[in-house]
Write a protein that binds this DNA or RNA. Structure first.
Lengths: 343, 343
DNA sequence: TTGTAAGCGTTATCAC
DNA sequence: GTGATAACGCTTACAA
């Protein structure tokens, strides 16, 4: 697979000058004759010369590439974050490479290794559901290697994080349900080790307390898998029980959709008999019947901000850029048919 | 951002031996004393030595990394393909990097450049909707650079392709509609320049002809955007018209979902008054109401096969591996509520 | 069994 | 204005 890619040496040889001169001519260094510059550039164009990024990385210990480590590319939310990241990166002359962990800690560690040995200049990370210890990141952070966490952020000192206000998003969602007259509200919770799960659950609890609704432990249902089937099964159990809940607040849209399916299969009408609100505003959420109310997160903006912070660390290397901080973006409740009772 | 990564030199210096010895010891070359090997490996472990992938790439003109260029990571279909690719790649000691083009030709060209200058060993490509000329790939292919196209495959000589039988998938889908008693079937078509769009449309046409249903040009509706809104708008127009269609076969699930929405908004019952079949079996398809019938493509398998073919080209470099060929995988119609009339 | 040196493509440092 | 040289980290003839 010889690619016949021209190198600086080829140009130098062809023009009978040294490679250093070619290198300088190509980058418009001062102190190179106009004539030489022109000759070099012309030939470079003709030969379709492209600087070898690998050689550059090695030489400069810098790849002008940032890495993104995410659980799964298929999440609609993550894909919007990626778009935001790419926007900022490209505008600043950086490439973006993507590695997915499939929610596996092992894969996450391997991804980090790959990034490091490939001289990736910095990392944007949303860690996996399996990740409970953060040594593999901490090691890097200790060396001042630029890392920004987004969405799923760790409980560490001095990390730079971008996330959304899951707590108040959840709170508002549940409050909305209560305002609509629902009072027996189940919570389908996310994976235990994610801060976002905890925050969403806390928001749920706060809204209930504020409305003087007593909390039932058996109505807080962990959904580790996060599949629609899982939540459908759990929901069916609850809905068939004696004391039937009249609404659900789920930690994600898929789970909410599963609950709606369960309710419909029992002949309950949504939203009259049973209301539902999800989280993340997946692409499908507006397309199901009834359209799913949900909490939307500003994915694109998260990506933009996270990438901006990362580039600050890489380019400026200022003390300040490495100061631990957490940017919290606002969420927004999107009310659709699944929770809007025709009062 | 000094990462304090140990190099071979560090180990050599510390042990007072040459770097070549270290290099050989680390890779269990014959003719290195057991003693030396042990010392080297021990220290390597202690210093957490990792070979610098960039230096390796430069030295070997090989990165053990394959690149995947896709339009958008958010498509459920593509994400399953990626999983298949990763499976095979990792099993063979290759890394996978992902670049998305956002359906832009310019970005696609940039992605190719990035891959090449970064010594990526080979490319798996599903090109963008904007791509009508293939020079940027042809150049590489002429140099025997390993490329495998998947799903969206070009009309070129000597390329290696993996795709699904869109034609027969579409044919079966429309035949199924006809079998269910639908006869006035609209086709929501995909982007003109994609072979898959043409094949799906041809399958639609064949099924109609076979059933002696005359084709109406105005019932073949191009949906360039591929959004749910777009198809909803077009569908509304058709459904409000005098001669109302009674079913739709769409080139993708999103468009089909838009059509269902349109029908429901007009008070038509699905599937009784209006049937719908989509394409690709998106994640949401089973979750909408009624669940959407669709044509499923073996995404994971496509990824596995495409990656396998690519690695053949990279590793074997045999003449045969570079011989143009097209692997065509079977599709399967998944019948769900949206097209199943209670006869 | 080990060391020396050249080279992958580029650029920074000195020298002329 | 331009050239020679070394270096980034690693591998691999070739020597010893």
């Amino acid at each position: 697979m010889k690619l016949g890619q021209a190198t600086i040496k080829d140009i130098a040889k062809a023009l009978n000058i040294s490679s250093s001169t070619v290198s300088r001519a190509l980058k418009d260094y001062p102190g190179i004759s106009k004539e030489t510059k022109e000759k070099v550039k012309e030939l470079a164009k003709e030969l379709n010369y492209r600087p070898n990024a690998v050689a550059l990385s090695l030489r400069k210990s810098k790849s002008s590439t940032i890495g993104v480590i995410i659980p799964e590319v298929v999440h609609f939310f993550f894909s919007t974050v990626i778009s935001g990241i790419e926007e900022v990166a490209y505008a600043n002359g950086y490439n973006v490479i993507l590695l997915q962990t499939n929610e596996s800690l092992e894969r996450e560690k391997a991804a980090v290794e790959t990034m490091i040995t490939n001289q990736i200049d910095g990392l944007l990370v949303s860690y996996s559901k399996e990740t409970t210890s953060f040594e593999h990141f901490q090691k890097l952070i200790d060396f001042n290697y630029p890392i920004v966490f987004f969405d799923r952020i760790p409980d560490l000192q001095n990390t730079i994080n971008v996330t959304v206000d899951d707590f108040s998003g959840a709170y508002s969602a549940v409050k909305h349900l209560i305002d609509q007259g629902y009072s027996k509200i189940v919570h389908l919770a996310g994976p235990k080790n994610l801060k976002i799960s905890k925050d969403r659950q806390d928001g749920y609890l706060k809204a209930l307390k504020e409305a003087n609704i007593s909390v039932r432990e058996d109505w807080i249902v962990p959904c580790p898998l996060g599949t629609s089937e899982e939540s459908e099964t759990f929901s069916l159990q609850l809905l068939k029980g004696k004391d039937r809940p009249d609404a659900v607040f789920a930690s994600n849209d898929i789970a909410a959709a599963g609950a709606i399916k369960a309710a419909k299969s029992l002949g309950l009408s949504v939203p009259e008999d049973f209301g539902a609100v999800g989280f993340s505003n997946w692409q499908f959420s507006s397309m199901i019947d009834p359209p799913l109310s949900t909490v939307s997160q500003p994915g694109f903006k998260i990506g933009e901000i996270a990438a901006g912070l990362l580039l600050d660390m890489i380019d400026n290397e200022s003390e300040e850029a490495f100061q631990g901080k957490t940017e919290v973006l606002e969420t927004r409740v999107i009310v659709r048919g699944s929770s809007l009772r025709k009062s």
